[in-house]
């Protein structure tokens, strides 16, 4: 198996960091041989999650990793923050639930966009990991 691309760690502190993060995700996705549709999926998902970090936690960070194994290509993105946390995950993952007057489609939509979706949240620690996988 060839070597992995280096993991990128990016701060999420401003609107501009959202742009940087989704760029980086799209780029790695492309380098891993994913198609246009997958690149758009991951960029949009990262955009959603990073925006939530800015909006609800103030700041956080994001790591973008090549998690390919064997012939499976995999891009894995982990976005975490030390904000207030999400008290009721089930509710937050419901379409239309928003505490900010938003569309409430970010979390549930992101879950539908990606192949793997994992969320852990407690006061002071929210971590969402998403992945796209392409079996080769």
């Amino acid at each position: 198996m060839s070597e992995h691309f280096a993991t990128e760690r990016l701060p999420i502190r401003s609107m501009l960091d959202i742009v940087t993060a989704r760029h980086a995700a799209r780029e790695l996705c492309e380098r891993l041989g994913f198609g246009k549709a997958d690149q758009t999926r991951i960029a949009t998902a990262v955009s959603e999650l990073a925006r939530n970090v800015i909006q609800y936690a103030g700041e956080g960070q994001c790591s973008i990793a090549d998690d390919s194994q064997g012939t499976h290509r995999c891009i894995r993105v982990c976005i975490e923050d030390h904000g207030p946390g999400i008290p009721d995950l089930e509710q937050a993952l419901c379409d239309g639930y928003s505490t900010s007057g938003g569309l409430g489609a970010g979390l549930p939509g992101t879950r539908r966009l990606v192949d793997e979706f994992e969320i852990q949240s407690a006061p002071g620690a929210t971590r969402i990991t998403i992945a796209l996988i392409k079996r080769g």
Partner: peptide
């Protein structure tokens, strides 16, 4: 809206 963009919007439920 690109085909990929349209697909993504649908997945997001928009």
């Amino acid at each position: 809206i690109s085909p990929e963009g349209a697909q993504t919007l649908t997945k997001l439920g928009i």
